[in-house]
C-alpha cells in the first residue's frame, strides 16, 4: 500500500496539485496538535458559562470558533446536550465523518463497520458494550454525522464538581463522552 501512496503523492506533487511541505504540516497538525482536548475545553466552557452554552446550542460552529477551533471537517458543527432524560450518541453510518478541529481524528472503533452499522439499529446494546447502561426512561437519540453536519455531544457535568474551575473541569471530559459512548 505504501507504494500506491508514494505513486499518488509523487504524481500529485509533480503536477503541482499538492505541496510536500503542506503535507508535512497537515500530518503534524493532526498527529500531534489537534485532539479531544479542544472539545473538552468547549464542554467545560459550556458548563461554566451559560451565555456560551446558549450560543453553542444555537450555533456551535460560531461558538467553537470563539475558542479558535476552526478548520477542515469543522465547517458545520452542531452541539447536542445530554440531560437526565436524554442521551445523545454520534455515528457516521456512511464513512467516518467527525469534527476534527474539536476531537482530532476518530478512534478505530468509530470507523469500524460494526459500530457504523449497529449504533443506529441497537444503540442500547452498543452503549452496553461501552459499559454504559441507561435506564429505560432515558431516551437515546442517535445522530448520523455527515460531511455537511458533524455533532459534538455535551455530556452532563459530573456530580460533585461545583468547586472545580473551567480548566479543571476540562480534564474530566473524555473523548468518548463527547461522542456519546461514555458517561462522565
Amino acid at each position: 500500500m505504501h507504494l500506491r501512496v508514494k505513486a499518488l503523492e509523487s504524481v500529485l506533487v509533480e503536477k503541482g496539485f499538492v505541496d510536500p511541505a503542506a503535507l508535512d504540516a497537515v500530518i503534524e497538525l493532526y498527529a500531534e496538535k489537534v485532539g479531544p482536548k479542544n472539545g473538552a475545553q468547549v464542554v467545560a466552557r459550556a458548563w461554566t458559562d451559560p451565555a456560551f452554552r446558549a450560543r453553542l446550542l444555537e450555533d456551535a460552529t460560531s461558538a467553537v470558533a470563539e475558542l479558535g477551533f476552526t478548520g477542515s471537517q469543522g465547517e458545520h458543527v452542531v452541539a447536542v446536550e445530554n440531560t437526565e432524560t436524554l442521551h445523545n450518541l454520534v455515528v457516521c453510518t456512511l464513512c467516518s465523518c467527525y469534527p476534527w478541529p474539536l476531537l482530532g481524528l476518530p478512534p478505530v472503533w468509530y470507523k469500524s463497520n460494526a459500530y457504523r452499522s449497529r449504533a443506529v439499529i441497537d444503540p442500547r446494546g452498543v452503549l452496553k458494550e461501552f459499559g454504559v447502561e441507561l435506564g429505560e426512561q432515558t431516551e437515546i437519540r442517535v445522530w448520523d454525522s455527515t460531511a455537511e453536519v458533524r455533532y459534538l455531544v455535551i455530556p452532563q457535568r459530573p456530580a460533585g464538581t461545583q468547586a472545580l474551575d473551567e480548566a479543571q473541569l476540562a480534564t474530566r471530559v473524555t473523548r468518548n463522552g463527547m461522542i456519546g459512548t461514555a458517561l462522565l
Binding site: 505504501h2 501512496v5 499538492v18 503535507l23 508535512d24 497537515v26 498527529a31 477542515s72
Partner: peptide
Amino acid sequence: WQAQAFALAVQLHAQGAFTWPEWS
C-alpha cells in the same frame, strides 16, 4: 503511509479538487 494518504486528501480538498460530501 496512512498519514501521507490522510494529508493528501486534506490538501486536495483545500485545493478544491473535491468537496467533503464528495469525499465522504
